[in-house]
């Protein structure tokens, strides 16, 4: 169930749709592509009302669905693309030419004659991207395209999408991988249980982070800091935050900053207490913290 979701994506922009499982991301994409009729509200793609004219709207939409098995596994990647091209009204000759071009665009030119069933997960994702781009869509809808891909594969998909926006296409990108939207998406909408809990830029989303926890690697007088040294450091920190054992390795401790505290000041206080700060790492990224704050934990 979706309620009160309002999303606008301009030409050449990437809008990320975040949310935990069951938040309504796929439902939203189904409504956008006309697979699901909304009980109220409307979706317009390139000025066309999707519910009133789904066929007309679909001519302007390219879809990269989640999951692998969205192709005919016994026929080649090229034949798959040519088939879908025909469904968009292309002649066989046009569809083949367009399919070959798109396969080359996504780096699958050499694998075009291979059966789609023999493609790796990453190759199927690129084939899916090639299919979505067959008709130079004005709106590209991408449903968790990097799910299950290695970092290189995910980067490749993102590069392809960035390239598409250069041609003026608008992109709706759903994901659960928070790290991938930084420096990629122009806008973010967070859905939780069918409602929008955040809409804004990635930077605005990061500012939603409230709890800030770090892992700090410290050295005391001997080697790892002792309990008495930690006690001293905590006294020095005062209202800035608290240090506590992170478990296991005694060299690493957890630093929880209070709201408004500045990390540099906290580290200076720890140094002033006689401990050497060797390394600092964020326990969770600001994006992850914001996401967790804006969504309801699932049991």
């Amino acid at each position: 169930m979706l309620s009160g979701v309002d999303l606008r994506v301009g030409a050449g922009r990437i809008s990320a749709l975040l949310g935990p499982n069951g938040a309504g991301k796929t439902t939203f994409l189904r409504i956008v592509t006309g697979l699901l009729l909304p009980e109220s509200g409307s979706v317009r793609v390139a000025g066309i009302d999707v519910a009133a004219d789904p066929m007309g709207a679909r001519r302007h939409i390219g879809v990269v669905p989640s999951g692998d098995r969205t192709f005919y596994m016994r026929i080649s990647g090229l034949e798959n693309l040519a088939f879908f091209g025909r469904l968009y009204g292309l002649s066989r000759r046009e569809a083949l030419a367009r399919a070959e071009q798109r396969l080359a665009d996504v780096g699958l030119a050499d694998a075009g004659a291979q059966r789609a069933g023999l493609y790796s997960h990453g190759m199927q994702k690129r084939l899916s991207m090639a299919r979505a781009l067959l008709m130079n869509p004005e709106l590209l809808v991408v449903d968790e395209a990097t799910d299950g891909l290695d970092p290189e594969g995910a980067r490749r998909i993102q590069d392809l999408v960035r390239g598409i926006t250069d041609t003026g296409a608008a992109v709706v990108w759903t994901t659960q991988r928070l790290d991938e939207i930084r420096g990629f998406a122009d806008a973010v909408t967070v859905l939780d249980r069918g409602r929008t809990t955040f809409a804004g830029t990635v930077e605005d989303l990061m500012l939603q982070a409230t709890s800030r926890a770090y892992f700090v690697r410290l050295r005391g007088v001997g080697d790892a800091p002792g309990d008495a040294e930690l006690q001293r450091a905590n006294e020095a920190l005062g209202a800035l935050g608290t240090l506590s054992r992170a478990g296991g390795d005694r060299e690493h401790v957890r630093l929880d900053l209070t709201e408004g505290a500045v990390l540099g000041e906290a580290l200076a206080a720890v140094s002033g207490a006689g401990l050497t700060v060797l390394d600092v790492a964020q326990q969770r990224s600001e994006l992850e913290q914001s996401f967790l704050r804006l969504t309801t934990p699932r049991t």
Partner: peptide
């Protein structure tokens, strides 16, 4: 279907694509 009506001839022309798809699929199971 609502909205703009599909061109029936263009729609029927798509049948040859389905035919080719299924012929290739069946031929792969000799």
């Amino acid at each position: 279907m609502t909205g703009a009506q599909a061109n029936p001839i263009a729609e029927l022309a798509k049948l040859s694509a389905f035919l080719r798809r299924d012929l290739l699929t069946r031929l792969s199971y000799r």
